[in-house]
Amino acid sequence: MIRMGRYAKIYFRLIGKEHIDEIRKASRVVVGNLTHSEQILLIAILYKLDEFHDSLYRMNQESRNLLDNVYKRLNS
């Protein structure tokens, strides 16, 4: 399982101890049967995709132009 970072610890303090067990169960279900290495790789890939999509969002383009412009950007 992935170790808790600073923000996760703060979050757990805010929500209270009564919910931690349920959150741990949900976390275990989300990662399924991935190994620790696979979990770390998944996080890295999702982070990279998030950065990519966030950069597109920040371009603030009209939706009718978005697909073509992103496609051009990927293939340039």
Rank of each mutant, 00 (worst) to 15 (best):
Y7M: 02
E18P: 10
I23A: 13
A26K: 11
E51S: 10
M59R: 14
M59Y: 09
Y57W: 13
E38R: 01
Y11A: 12
K25Y: 13
G32K: 05
N65F: 14
V30E: 07
N33A: 08
N60P: 00
Y11P: 03
L66Y: 05
K48V: 01
L49T: 01
Y57R: 12
A26H: 08
D21F: 13
G5L: 05
Y57G: 06
S76D: 07
L67G: 14
R28V: 09
E22V: 15
L34D: 02
D50E: 11
L56I: 14
D50K: 05
V31F: 04
L56Y: 12
E22D: 15
I15W: 05
I15K: 05
N69L: 14
S37A: 08
N69M: 13
K9G: 12
L42R: 14
H36Q: 07
S27Y: 08
H53C: 11
N65W: 13
N75K: 05
K25T: 14
K72M: 10
R73A: 08
G5C: 06
E18R: 14
S63H: 07
S76T: 07
N33R: 10
G5V: 07
N33Y: 06
E22A: 15
R24H: 11
A44C: 08
D54T: 15
I15Q: 05
L66R: 05
H19M: 15
I40H: 01
L67E: 15
I43N: 06
M59H: 09
D54H: 14
I10Y: 09
I20C: 15
F52Y: 09
S55D: 08
L42H: 14
H19T: 15
L66P: 04
N60G: 06
H53I: 12
I45W: 05
K48H: 00
V29K: 08
G16C: 06
E62D: 10
K48W: 00
N33F: 04
K17D: 13
Y47F: 00
Y47T: 02
T35N: 00
R73Y: 06
E38P: 02
Q39N: 09
M1E: 01
I15P: 00
L67M: 14
F52D: 04
S37P: 01
M59I: 11
L14H: 04
G32A: 04
H53V: 11
L74H: 02
S63A: 06
E62N: 05
L41E: 13
I10Q: 10
L67Y: 15
N69P: 12
R28P: 07
L49Y: 02
E51C: 09
M1K: 01
H36S: 05
R13F: 00
R58T: 12
N69E: 15
N65C: 11
G5K: 05
S76I: 07
I2N: 01
R13Y: 01
S27G: 09
D68H: 13
D54E: 15
K72I: 10
E51I: 02
I43D: 06
Y57C: 07
